[in-house]
């Protein structure tokens, strides 16, 4: 009878045999699914609104300086980090805290590699002026055409004043375009010179010739890319929010490492690591879909 008293009595639990932490994390991930579905859905809608070929086509990865292999490397980096975070949970659940800390450290490092590659890509966009609202398009419209012409005029004058390491050939072409703009027979009271479309053609020719050089030259002139501003808005919205989510995950990994440093991480935190892993896997899944949408086809 004493033995029966000492046995653990089965307890009745309300609801599903699902821990509060896991339920809460999945509920949060469901909201994040809706968030990213909205962004991706709008991107698909805008993409489908534009033709796939012709002069008014949606920008191809080449048009907007998107490097496919960088996206593929980033995908591989996130897959590896998902693997290491799940291994961290696996080993900590079996009491091996030290090994778990190593795996979390590797996950953190891979996260930083991902953000580093993203930073290189964002810098490239900034260098080429592929930013929302900056790109020249709809040059046949009087307002946007005029704005683009004025912008190019200022950029060409800046190049004339300070060539910034550009080749003589490129500087000569820029000066020639500026001269054409100022002395064009099209110049009227309302038209400052060459038509914006002709200016755009001249600019794209200079940019393409710069790309063909060895090493490729980045000329600081605003490109003309149909649907380019919409593309840039979608790109920075989707990848920017994704990167912010990656940063959030890295913050949690740092917290885990600090806990380990203070000797406060133990096997009892296996569930904590599992929930963190769920979040990190979700971030990976989002990138799995963003990569083909942005970088491929």
């Amino acid at each position: 009878m004493a033995h029966a008293v000492l046995e653990e009595q089965p307890q009745a639990h309300m609801g599903l045999p699902l821990s509060n932490g896991k339920l809460a994390m999945w509920m949060f991930l469901v909201t994040e699914v809706m968030f990213f579905t909205a962004l991706v859905g709008v991107y698909v809608l805008l993409r489908q609104s534009a033709p796939s070929s012709g002069p008014n086509r949606w920008p191809s990865p080449h048009d907007v300086h998107v490097v496919e292999w960088m996206g593929a490397v980033n995908t591989f980096v996130l897959i590896c980090s998902s693997l290491t975070v799940v291994l961290a949970h696996y080993v900590i659940a079996r009491g091996n805290v030290k090994q778990a800390v190593i795996y979390i450290g590797i996950t953190l490092a891979l996260g930083f590699v991902f953000l580093g590659i993203k930073a290189v890509e964002y810098y490239s966009k900034w260098q080429h002026d592929i930013l929302p609202g900056h790109i020249g398009e709809q040059l046949d419209h009087p307002v946007t055409g005029q704005q683009y012409a004025e912008k190019i005029r200022r950029e060409l004058q800046a190049i004339e004043k300070d060539p910034k390491g550009l080749s003589e050939e490129t500087v000569h072409e820029c000066k020639a375009l500026l001269k054409d703009m100022q002395e064009s027979p099209d110049k009227t009271k309302y038209n400052p010179g060459l038509s914006p479309e002709k200016i755009g053609e001249g600019v794209m020719k200079i940019l393409e010739e710069g790309e063909k050089k060895n090493p490729p030259e980045t000329v600081p002139l605003t490109p003309v890319i149909p649907h380019g501003n919409m593309w840039a808005s979608c790109y920075f919205a989707m990848t920017g929010f994704h990167a912010l989510h990656v940063v959030g995950g890295l913050v949690i990994f740092v917290i885990i490492l600090v806990m380990a440093l203070l000797g406060r991480l133990g096997a009892q935190h296996a569930a904590f690591l599992e929930y963190t892993g769920l979040y990190w896997h979700f971030v990976d899944i989002v990138w799995i879909f963003l990569f083909p949408l942005i970088y491929l086809i």
């Binding site: 999945w26 469901v30 699914v33 579905t37 859905g41 698909v44 489908q48 609104s49 534009a50």
Partner: peptide, 26 residues
């Protein structure tokens, strides 16, 4: 967890479908 995930997939698909009429060929 299916009671949370299935509604999310349904709503996500619905969102995509609801956006379809806004595809206006430019």
């Amino acid at each position: 967890t299916y009671f949370m995930l299935i509604p999310a997939f349904i709503l996500g698909t619905m969102m995509m479908i609801v956006l379809l009429p806004d595809i206006v060929f430019a």
